[in-house]
């Protein structure tokens, strides 16, 4: 009796999530996958084949854009980690009380405005007639206006900025759980700061590092606005290809295939990272 009602309760609790998953994730993905298998052979005529995936593999541009997106995302993730780690360490281990909450809040503040506004903010700062350029000229560091926008570095800045919070939060959580005495024990037993970082702090923070990296990597890989707006004429981003196939070329079939290739790539990279760092998805997400 109690077993049945407990099971019923469990089913009821799970129902919204299951419904959400099925309706909004599973069914659209199946549908999209079927679309990606359609090949246009004439006006309004289609046949089932892997031709769209073939197109992806045959066209060097698509492969190149794909590789570029992946490499830039990995780089953005690494940079975010490099910048985010000291910030998280400071907040988790060194800051106390009020300072701590204020610092944490500062990490959060950029997310009170939409991504579009944030990106526009960077455009205002970095453009040729923008703030940074004017400051450089005023300080005598640049002879004329400097264009800082519309290049890969600007994309990187935007991506790192957008992702910072998603790296810092899991890092703070794991670093917080590291007992200060463990770090002191490291010093006490003769460890130097770099060796303690390498042998104690980083191994302990690994689940946070990995989960932060996964989130930041996925966000960068799937970002559309930042590369398009800050990257200018050389910004090749895979999401842009997907957008243009769907919207500009009316080629949903190829767009869907691109979407699945991107899904596959991100899954493979995440899986690879987990294997490489010896973490399991359960440890990282739990």
């Amino acid at each position: 009796m109690t077993g049945t009602s407990a099971r019923l309760g469990f089913v009821l609790l799970l129902a919204p999530a299951a419904l959400w998953l099925t309706l909004l994730i599973v069914i659209p993905h199946i549908d999209l996958f079927l679309v990606s298998l359609r090949e246009r052979i004439g006006v309004g005529q289609y046949t089932t084949s892997f031709a769209n995936y073939g197109t992806f593999l045959d066209e060097p541009l698509y492969l190149m854009t794909f590789a570029r997106t992946a490499i830039m995302s990995v780089l953005a993730t690494a940079l975010t980690l490099l910048i985010g780690f000291p910030v998280a360490y400071y907040i988790a281990k060194l800051a106390r009380g009020r300072t701590r909450s204020v610092l944490f809040l500062l990490c959060l503040v950029p997310f009170w405005v939409s991504e579009l506004v944030r990106t526009f903010g960077w455009m205002i700062l970095l453009r040729e007639t923008g703030l940074v350029s004017s400051l450089l000229q005023w300080a005598g560091l640049a002879a004329g206006p400097v264009e800082l926008l519309y290049n890969d570095a600007a994309i990187m800045v935007g991506l790192v900025y957008t992702s910072m919070l998603f790296m810092v939060v899991p890092l703070i959580t794991t670093l917080d759980s590291l007992d200060d005495a463990v770090i002191e024990a490291g010093y006490d037993l003769g460890g130097s700061a770099p060796s303690i970082l390498r042998e104690i702090v980083i191994p302990h923070a690994m689940p946070g590092i990995v989960s932060g990296c996964i989130v930041v990597f996925m966000l960068s890989l799937g970002n559309y606005l930042t590369p398009i707006m800050l990257g200018g004429k050389d910004s090749l981003w895979f999401t842009e290809l997907i957008y243009s196939q769907f919207i500009l070329r009316f080629n949903w079939e190829l767009g869907a295939a691109f979407g699945f290739v991107l899904l596959l790539l991100s899954s493979v990279i995440v899986w690879g990272t987990l294997r490489l760092t010896g973490q399991t998805l359960r440890e990282t997400m739990g």
Binding site: L61, L236, L241, N251
Partner: peptide
Amino acid sequence: PAGLEAIEGGVLDRVKAAN
């Protein structure tokens, strides 16, 4: 005519990718 967009798309992609 239907289908021209595919040719144009290829051109635009290559221009964008060129250095």
